[in-house]
Every structure is written in C-alpha cells, then in structure tokens.
Nucleic acid binder design. Structure first.
Lengths: 185, 185
DNA sequence: TGAATCATGTAAACAGTTACATGATTGG
DNA sequence: CCAATCATGTAACTGTTTACATGATTCA
C-alpha cells in the first residue's frame, strides 16, 4: 500500500518547476536559469530546492528523468513533463487556492514602526525599494518591446509587474518627500 | 560564556512584536488582536508564534513579563518593551536589509502558466483577487476617514495599501476582460 | 592564473503554520 | 444552551534557505 504521493497536492515550487517543464525538457541547471529569466521576480527558489524537487516529481510520476552523458561537460539529468504531470499542473492552477495578497512585507513593517527610527534612514530604505522598482520596470519594458513575447499569459504577468512597479514608484516618491520634510523639522 | 542572544538579529515576527509593544504593554492575546487591527494585512503571524516569540524576547532582555492575576478571567502575562528592546527594534528597522519585492506570488505563477488551464477558471481566480483588493481598499478608506489616525507612519503604510489595491484592481479588470475574450474564441 | 560556467547534490538550520489541548465566563 | 471571548501554550510538520562539497572546462 504505497499510496501516498497520489493526490498529495503540489507545493508552489513543485508547480513552478512543472510549469517550466511544460515549456520543454530541462535539467536542474537549465531550470535554475529559466527561473531567473522568467518567473524569477515573483518566484525564485534556491537551486538546492530545485534539485530536491525534481526526484520527488519523478517518484510521483509527474516527470521522467533521462541521464544524458556529455563529453567535455559533466553528465546531466534531463527532466520531461509526463501526462500526469501536466494534469497535476492544471489541477494546481485551477483548484489550489492562492493565498491572499498583500502578504508579508517587512519594509512596510519598518515604515509602520518608523517613529522609533531615523526618518533619513527610513527614507533611504524606501528609496532603495524605488530604485529596485525602477529597474524592474525597465527590464519589463524591454521584454515588452520584444515581439517574440506576445503570449497572452506572459503579457498578463508582465503587466502586473509594470503595474506593481508603477505603484511602488509613485508611493515611494511621495513617502520620500514627506520624510524629508519630517527630517527638517 | 553564555553569550548568544546578544547580537543575534531579530526575525521579522520578533520585530513586529517589539513594534507593537512599543505602543504599550500587552499580553499575547492582546498582541494577536493588535496585529489584526494594524499590521495584519502585511504581517499576520499565527498566534502560536506570537506566544513562542514572547519568552524569547524576555530571555534576550528585549521585553519584560509580568504575571497579572485576574478574577473571573484567566491569568495573563503582560509584556513590556525594555530599553534594550527599543534599541533592538531601532537597529532592525535601520540596519536589517528588507528582502526585495515583489516576492513570492503564487497567483502570478498560475497566470504565467495559464495556457495549461481553463481561461474561465483563471479569470475566476483573478476576479477573487480583485474582490479582496476592493475590500482592502474600502477598509483602508474607512481608516483614512478616522481623524484619530493621522500619524505620518500609519498614513504612509495605509497609502501603500491603497496604491497596491488600486494596482491590483486595474490590472485584474483588464486581465478579466482579456481572458473573457480568449474564452469566446 | 584565476574567475565564470557547467552540473549536481547533501546537511543543517530556520521561520512559520496547523492541529491539538484546556478551561472559565459572558452574552444572546 | 450554545457560541464567542478570554487566555495560553505544545507538538508535529512543512517549505525553504544557507552553507558546504566536488570537479571539469572555457575564456579573458
């Protein structure tokens, strides 16, 4: 009675890996790269976890592994999505409830208790967050210009990123201004 | 050589609890309530964790505990921020780097791999996220109307919430529209 | 020569959640 | 009478991260 992995639902990272495998077979190493280039800004697991997840998927029949010998490169294992894997991904997308958002936001916690600290330093943290958002924005705008990427679902995620970045930037600018005023008085 | 807790830096939940204690002494139970009414929408630890954190803070000298006997109510322990606690909170706010944002967003992962699933169901998930955001918005707008709450730092966090909610709503409306179109074809 | 890339993993720790446990008092 | 509130905690688990480990090859 080795029933177990059967209906056990996926972790988010497992789902992310299945999702990436749905775009084609990849090794753990490839997956790590693929994460950085696509879902990285809203889902970025450590590489050790990718390697931990893969055998679990194989065990559950959601992916298959094939050892590929290479010369002048270390051997690698290439993983491929199975039909069961695709079905599991579909179920995860459709049925697993996504936790409500906004979730945990440590920066906001700093702001909320900001009167305990120096307004200048706090403004510095906010400024850094704004710079990050500005970088994200230009990265996403570059992607947007690329005509190879006009898939609806990619566009939707990208536009969330842009919407989010715009919100951060607008908020941060105002907050920086007001904290600067507070510093003076 | 029992050096240990000294410079060990705070977890985010510890910082959150110290922050709430900076507003006055409270019991674990009070803290749980206070979380819900203030930082709850961007930091909401389980009550079991609040109870776990409190003795740790006392051990580290960041808070002090006093048992209060009550009649017709269970006894309680009331915690008070110490001077060291306030200093630790300040250090956390000023020096602990906040992880970059956007962070983990499972809904976005669903959208990104959306072509594996049904557009109607996906649109449903997005709609739910929008409804959550609309609720958050009206909650925060209510707070904004309350003249007792015109503290700068509270206002800054509240405005982030409003900015965020607006971004979600705008994004979701468009996404829902486009997915509906996709469903038809 | 030395850093970066390719390639895979293990071990230990960590922050946090869920479920479980108990029991009195108040208010509808 | 029953649900909610008051009040505190433990035990088990989960998902994830960080640090450690190894070693070949390519390129500046």
């Amino acid at each position: 009675m080795t029933a177990r992995t059967k209906t056990a639902q996926l972790t988010t990272t497992e789902a992310a890996v299945l999702g990436l495998l749905s775009q084609g077979p990849r090794s753990g190493y490839d997956l790590k790269k693929a994460v950085e280039l696509s879902v990285g800004y809203f889902w970025g697991p450590a590489k050790s976890q990718i390697y931990a997840v893969l055998p679990r998927l194989v065990e559950g029949g959601l992916a298959s592994a094939k050892k590929v010998a290479q010369d002048q490169r270390p051997d690698k294992s290439v993983y491929r999505l199975t039909r069961a894997g695709r079905a599991a991904l579909k179920t995860w997308i459709e049925e697993t409830p996504a936790p409500p958002d906004p979730d945990r936001n440590p920066l906001l916690l700093k702001v909320f208790f900001g009167d305990v600290a120096s307004p200048e330093i706090l403004a510095g943290h906010i400024r850094e967050r704004r710079l990050e958002a500005e970088e994200l924005r230009s990265y996403l705008e570059e992607l947007e210009a690329d005509p190879a990427r006009d898939d609806l679902y990619e566009a939707l995620t990208r536009r969330w990123g842009l919407e989010y970045a715009a919100a951060v930037i607008r908020w941060a600018k105002r907050a920086e201004r007001e904290l600067a005023r507070r510093s003076l008085s």
